[in-house]
């Protein structure tokens, strides 16, 4: 039996994630954003070429410090205030807009089993 290791367990990050599918219509995830009227442009800008969204773009609407304060009770640890990045973990390392979100911490902390919305 071989165990499949997703590359994130090795900590290589997201490079190349976008390369393949740029321009393709993304699978519409049932998203609070769409429901609340957040438009494509508000995340992707006006360039017309949707690509990875820089961290500061999310911060334009979500203040990381406020967010961290809201999730202090999250078990087993606060994903928005952590040892490695403080409140500054790039949101898109966990939350995805067009596909299932992932848990950045889990490969290294096997008991940090929180569900990422």
């Amino acid at each position: 039996m071989t165990i499949h290791i997703p590359s994130r367990i090795l900590g290589f990050g997201l490079a190349g994630l976008l390369a393949a599918s740029l321009g393709a219509a993304p699978a519409a995830r049932t998203s609070k954003h769409a429901a609340r009227g957040v438009t494509c442009v508000q995340c992707h800008g006006k360039s017309g070429k949707p690509a990875a969204v820089p961290f500061r773009q999310c911060q334009g609407c979500h203040d990381p410090a406020d967010l961290a304060a809201r999730t202090t009770q999250a078990k087993p640890t606060n994903p928005h205030q952590n040892r490695h990045y403080g409140t500054q973990t790039d949101c898109t390392r966990c939350h995805h807009e067009h596909k299932a979100s992932e848990n950045l911490c889990l490969p290294c902390h096997t008991r940090f089993t929180f569900k990422v919305p």
């Binding site: 290791i5 367990i9 090795l10 900590g11 990050g13 490695h84 490969p107 290294c108």
Partner: peptide
């Protein structure tokens, strides 16, 4: 195939 202990050491 070995896991890493650090992040962003690129």
């Amino acid at each position: 195939h070995l896991e890493r202990k650090q992040m962003d050491r690129t």
